[in-house]
């Protein structure tokens, strides 16, 4: 199986670390690219400017509260782009507000996860993403 490439759109350094460490315990080889704000995320996906050599990811983990363009805007961009809309987008955010959740699904997010507060639960959640989206699920880019 090809190594899975994940684009993590997240501005919180701490969370980036946690997620990286969680994925490091995974069975599979996972490459993680980081975009620290919404604008950079879009540029990455569109291979613009500094990102022209980047590869399209297999999976996108998207935070909502981002500088410049927020997660909803990035989501909309992805799901309206003919070249990107097939990519699974997992919303992973601190927000548990109904508004954020329903808006995300309305804009065709593949799933929405609220970041667990407890660190153990957090790691478990990340592992669950791995188990489900990478081990279990057939990804469109992996066929």
């Amino acid at each position: 199986m090809k190594p899975v490439h994940i684009l993590l759109v997240e501005d919180n350094e701490g969370d980036i670390l946690l997620i990286r460490e969680a994925f490091e315990e995974a069975k599979l080889v996972i490459t993680i690219s980081i975009a620290k704000d919404g604008e950079k995320a879009i540029k990455f996906l569109e291979k613009q400017d500094d990102y022209k050599d980047e590869k399209t990811p297999d999976l996108i983990i998207l935070d909502v509260n981002l500088p410049r363009k927020n997660g909803h805007e990035v989501l909309c961009h992805i799901k309206q782009s003919t070249t990107l809309k097939h990519l699974p987008v997992i919303m992973l955010t601190t927000s548990s507000s109904e508004r954020d959740i329903s808006l995300s699904y309305k804009n065709h997010a593949n799933c929405y996860i609220t970041k667990p507060v407890d660190v153990e639960d957090f790691l478990k959640a990340v592992l669950s993403i791995e188990n489900f989206w990478i081990s279990l699920v057939q990804l469109p880019t992996q066929i």
Binding site: N12, G14, D15, T94, V117, D118, V119, E120, F122
Partner: peptide, 14 residues
């Protein structure tokens, strides 16, 4: 306030 607190708790735990 919850966000930074989560950082503290999480990394202390780790």
């Amino acid at each position: 306030l919850q966000e930074p607190l989560r950082m503290v708790t999480s990394f202390l735990s780790l």
